[in-house]
C-alpha cells in the first residue's frame, strides 16, 4: 500500500518535471516570439503612417550589409512595399493595403497571444494540481514515516 503510494508520488513528480515544466518553458518562449512579431508590425505600421503623413515618394536610407557596415540605398518609388506574410513569402502592397494587412495581422497576433497566455496559465494550474495531489497523498498517512520531500 505504502509502496504503491510512493510509486504514485514518484510518477506524479516525474510528470511535473518531465512534462509540465518543459511545456511551460516552451509556451513562454512561443509567447515571447509572438510579442516580438507584434512589436515588429506595430513599428511597421507606425513607419508607414509617418511616410503617409509626410507624403514621401522617394527615400534614401542606409542598409546594413553585415558587421555594422552600412551602404547608402535609394528607394525611387515608395508606393509599393513588400511585406512579409510568413513562411518566407512577401506580398507587394500599396500603403493602404499594407496598413489593412497589418491591422489584421495584429489582431491575429493578439489572439495568439491570448491563447498562449491561457495555455501558460493552464499549465501552471496543472502543475499546482499535481503538487496538491502529491501533498494529499503525503498528508493522509500522516503517521507513516515518509521521507520528507521539498517542493
Amino acid at each position: 500500500m505504502d509502496r504503491l503510494r510512493q510509486e504514485k508520488i514518484l510518477k506524479f513528480e516525474e510528470f511535473v518535471d518531465q512534462r509540465l515544466k518543459p511545456d511551460l518553458v516552451r509556451a513562454i518562449a512561443e509567447r515571447d516570439k509572438v510579442f516580438e512579431q507584434q512589436k515588429i508590425f506595430s513599428d511597421l505600421r507606425r513607419n508607414i503612417e509617418n511616410l503617409e503623413k509626410s507624403s514621401v515618394t522617394s527615400l534614401k536610407t542606409l542598409v546594413n550589409i553585415g558587421s555594422e557596415v552600412y551602404l547608402q540605398a535609394e528607394v525611387p518609388d515608395t508606393q509599393h512595399i513588400f511585406v512579409d506574410i510568413g513562411l518566407g513569402f512577401h506580398v507587394e502592397f500599396t500603403w493602404s493595403e499594407a496598413l489593412n494587412y497589418i491591422t489584421q495581422r495584429e489582431e491575429r497576433l493578439k489572439r495568439q497571444l491570448e491563447e498562449y497566455t491561457q495555455l501558460i496559465a493552464s499549465i501552471k494550474a496543472q502543475i499546482k494540481l499535481v503538487y496538491e495531489g502529491i501533498r494529499e497523498l503525503l498528508q493522509l498517512p500522516a503517521e507513516k514515516p515518509f521521507p520528507e520531500r521539498t517542493f
Binding site: 515588429i40 508590425f41 513599428d43 511597421l44 513607419n47 527615400l59 534614401k60 536610407t61 542606409l62 542598409v63 558587421s67 555594422e68 557596415v69 552600412y70 551602404l71 547608402q72 540605398a73 535609394e74 528607394v75 525611387p76 518609388d77 515608395t78 509599393h80 512595399i81 513588400f82 511585406v83 512579409d84 512577401h90 499594407a98
Partner: peptide, 20 residues
C-alpha cells in the same frame, strides 16, 4: 524597411561605406 517589410530600391554610392 523594418524587419518585416522591404522596398524595391538600389544601392547608390557604391564606394562609400559607413563603418562602425
Amino acid at each position: 524597411f523594418g524587419k518585416a517589410a522591404f522596398f524595391p530600391g538600389r544601392l547608390i554610392h557604391t564606394n562609400e561605406f559607413l563603418v562602425l
